[in-house]
Design a protein around this nucleic acid. Structure first.
Length: 595
RNA sequence: GGUUCCGUAGCUCAGCUGGAUAGAGCAACAGAUUUCUAAUCUGUGGGUCUAGGGUUCGAAUCCCUACGGGACUACCA
């Protein structure tokens, strides 16, 4: 039971004893006392005035007095305006401290038994990953970990967009201007090589369009008539017909891309439980179109195209099948969702996709509901904001796209430079250093992105490197390294941590604050999971680390002469380091032993 | 036209299931190392929480309107 719940329950008893009124404890408002006031927890008394028929001060004082007299854990109180501040006794804090430090599964929420699928990343195979994808990947990965910590079974998945006209464009350009280059021959990472081919196609295409316009054609017509585009369409038809040469090239070039992606995923520390490929799923959903027609959910237009009328829901008409009988993007999404729910007995399915697709998911959910699937309510679009540069959106045409591999490398270099400057790691092997720089650089990058509320558009300034001071990943990593250093020294002195055997000791105000913050960790996990917001965990970890650093600054730990107090402090900081590790693990950030 | 998200310090962001005097970091300035890691800590300055109305004992938080910014509304994916 949390202290808040404890107080609420006791306060309900007080109200019954004093005013004869029955109050549901869960309706009482109890919060941590603001630090300007004296107290541990605060009961808001305003809502109770209709029972006491008295002033806020009198009501607060009466309840406070009753609690002090009848609840041994509550040692004192004061009432400011309508806020009843309650102080817990040292015995109480010792008890809570022991509960936290002796529970090996502290922070892991009880199992919900629910199966949740999280789809994220879902890359195109014609472009290397950039900063926007990094936000997607980090969010998806950390939300998965968060939901797991909150007691769910999580299946991480991705849908690789590996077919379609855009892939044919890259293939065509490779045939025309690629000169047989392979990742091995060119020394380029596969995804970058194919990305270059996609850019090359657009150059060719643009040149052709310009020439056609110069020859007197209208722009719209020129865009349709450019020979390279026609060739790409022809190639797509061949692909769909299963033409061996086209399929072979497609498989080869996709192989290069996947190899490149795998490297980036590995560098980010991200993996998936199930990978779906669009070439396997793009035909799904056609039966659902027929089913929708039978049920009268969809209608056929004179030209044969199939639509769903959503005007009654305040939206537009949505096409679900083209007049030539082929399916559109949403059709396969309908089919894929149906397949996933029926195959995995899912309780919930979360799509981590940028907010430019808000409309799409609104439509998807509506249509699934209209088709009669009860689980339509169990799909969630975790819609995140764009990552913008100071001058606005990233534009490949203007060369402002921040490449994922470059950025990861840059962060590594920054971490290396900062570490070398400090000169603390002279005795480490090169291998250890390399691992550490990667940990710090990646920690800075991940934290920078995850600490922002997912739904907000966020800004990244490539000219200013991501900070290592203040509210950052390395700050928390550094805090952890400091704690571990003390614990190592304690161990060298032959001290064994013994949380269970710790007798009652006097706790300082700072120590009580730290225990309070530690104690809120499980509820933060629950809160963050409910909101699908790892940012909540990031900010929690920062608060805890900051509080520790203040404590560290003015409280000597190893110099403490009283053996019990020394032990209490070691157990306390050990618990802090453990919670920091758990919290940061949810964000996919590792914490070093030293740095 | 419709749908939807956002607007808090010079900058980047917390706080938003209503509670006390709206918080951090960065940047600026002033300090703290014979001491467990200075990637740290302490202090100073910095605010019409876009605006206006409403609900309430109480609103940055909830509701309405306006303004400003973004995204979507393709027989693209």
């Amino acid at each position: 039971m949390t202290p808040e719940m404890f107080i609420a329950a006791k306060a309900a008893q007080a109200i019954k004893a004093l005013y004869g009124a029955e109050v549901e404890a869960s309706t009482l408002q109890v919060s941590v006392t603001r630090k300007e006031f004296e107290g541990d927890f605060t009961l808001v008394v305003f809502p109770l005035l209709r029972m006491s028929h008295s002033t806020p001060e009198n009501t607060g004082n009466a309840i406070g007095q009753w609690l002090k007299d009848n609840v041994p854990e509550i040692s004192d109180f004061n009432c400011v305006k309508g806020f009843l501040n309650l102080l817990f006794s040292n015995v109480y804090w010792n008890g809570l401290f022991k509960e936290i430090t002796t529970d090996p599964s502290f922070g892991n929420l009880p199992s919900t038994g629910k199966n949740i699928m999280v789809e994220f990343s879902s890359p195109n195979t014609n472009k290397p990953l950039h900063l926007g994808h990094i936000r997607n990947n980090l969010l998806g990965d950390s939300v998965s970990k968060l939901l797991k910590a909150a007691g769910n079974n999580v299946i991480k998945t991705t849908l690789v967009n590996d077919r379609g006209i855009h892939i044919c464009k890259s293939m065509l350009a490779w045939q025309k201007v690629g000169e047989g280059a392979t990742p091995a021959s060119s020394g380029k990472k596969g995804d970058h090589l194919v990305g270059d081919m996609y850019v090359a196609f657009n150059d060719i295409y643009k040149k052709e369009v310009d020439e056609l316009i110069a020859g007197g054609m209208s722009e719209d017509e020129a865009k349709k008539e450019a020979p390279s585009l026609k060739e790409a369409h022809l190639m797509l038809q061949k692909w769909e017909a299963g033409d061996k040469d086209v399929r072979d090239l497609w498989a080869t070039m996709n192989g290069w891309v996947f190899e490149g992606f795998d490297q980036t995923y590995a560098a980010l520390g991200i993996d998936f439980d199930k990978v779906y490929y669009e070439h396997d799923t793009y035909l799904l959903g056609k039966e659902l179109v027929q089913e929708g027609l039978r049920k009268g959910v969809f209608v056929t237009d004179p030209d044969g195209s199939v639509w769903c009328d959503l005007t009654g829901d305040g939206l537009d008409r949505k096409i679900v099948q083209r007049s030539d009988g082929t399916s559109v993007y949403i059709t396969q999404d309908l089919g894929t969702a149906e397949k996933r729910f029926s195959e995995n007995s899912l309780d919930s399915h979360i799509y981590v996709v940028g907010n430019e697709q808000d409309y799409h998911f609104q439509v998807l959910k509506l249509i699934l509901g209209k088709l009669g699937f009860a689980w339509a309510d169990d799909i969630f679009h975790l819609s995140y904001g764009m990552v913008e540069l100071p001058e606005g959106k990233m534009k490949s045409r203007e060369g402002t796209v921040v490449d994922a591999d470059d950025l990861i490398q840059k962060m590594y270099e920054e971490a290396k430079a900062t570490s070398e400057e400090s000169g603390k790691l002279a005795d480490m092997t090169d291998e250890e250093k390399d691992k550490l720089y990667h940990m710090i650089g990646l920690g800075a990058l991940k934290y920078f992105i995850i600490k922002v509320d997912p739904k907000k558009t966020m800004l990244f300034n490539p000219k200013e490197s991501i900070d290592f001071n203040g509210n950052t990943g390395p700050f928390i990593q550094y805090t952890h390294a400091r704690i571990r250093s003390i614990l190592r020294k304690a161990q060298d002195k032959g001290i064994c941590l013994d949380a269970a055997g710790l007798p009652e000791v006097a706790l300082s105000a700072k120590e009580i604050r730290l225990i309070k913050i530690l104690n809120t960790y499980p509820s933060k996990v629950g809160e963050a999971a409910a909101a699908l917001s790892p940012a909540v965990i990031a900010n929690y970890a920062y608060d805890l680390a900051k509080e520790f650093n203040q404590y560290y600054h003015d409280t000597p730990i190893l110099k403490e002469e009283n053996a019990d107090t020394l032990m209490m402090r070691l157990v306390l900081i050990d618990a802090i380091s453990a919670v920091l590790r758990k919290a940061m693990a949810i964000l996919g950030i590792e914490l070093p032993e030293r740095m």
